[in-house]
Simulated scan of single mutants.
Amino acid sequence: MGLILWLIIGGLAGWIAGNIMRGGGFGILGNIGVGIVGAVLGGLVFRLLGIASYSIIGSLVTAIVGAVLLLWIVSMVRKS
């Protein structure tokens, strides 16, 4: 997957995760950044679980799961 496509998927995942985690977002640009980092985190988590994605939709789902997970972790740290 090309770098541009990876950035687009991560950005889209961050935007979706920001909408899922109401009140847990960082604004549009922050959520896009979280989505890109979350895409990497989601890939690591799915790889540890033995789940692989070979399509753009699978990559998007992986990135969304990672971004939601990252937003949840950051919101927990922010509260304490």
Rank of each mutant, 00 (worst) to 15 (best):
I16Q: 02
L41F: 13
V34W: 13
N31P: 01
A39M: 10
L60K: 04
M1H: 10
I51N: 08
S75P: 01
G43V: 13
Y54R: 07
G10Y: 06
A67H: 02
S59F: 02
G66S: 09
I32A: 10
V77E: 11
G30Y: 02
V40Q: 14
N19M: 12
G50Y: 07
L48T: 03
G23A: 06
V61F: 05
A39T: 06
L44Y: 14
G50K: 06
L48F: 05
L44E: 15
I73T: 01
L60G: 03
A63S: 13
I20L: 04
A52S: 07
G66W: 12
W72G: 04
L44P: 00
A52V: 01
G11S: 14
G18K: 05
G10R: 04
A17P: 06
G2R: 00
I9T: 04
M21G: 00
G11D: 14
S75Y: 09
G66L: 11
A67W: 06
L3P: 01
Y54N: 11
S80K: 11
I32D: 12
A67C: 07
V40R: 10
S53Q: 12
L12S: 15
V37T: 15
G2K: 01
K79D: 15
S53T: 12
L49P: 00
L41M: 13
K79F: 10
M21R: 13
V40K: 10
G50S: 08
S75L: 13
G30T: 06
L49V: 00
Y54V: 07
V77R: 11
I28C: 07
G30H: 02
L70P: 00
L3F: 12
G11N: 11
N31M: 02
G38L: 13
I9Y: 00
L5C: 01
L70M: 10
A67P: 01
K79G: 14
I8K: 01
Y54K: 05
L71G: 09
I32H: 07
G2I: 11
L5G: 08
M76R: 14
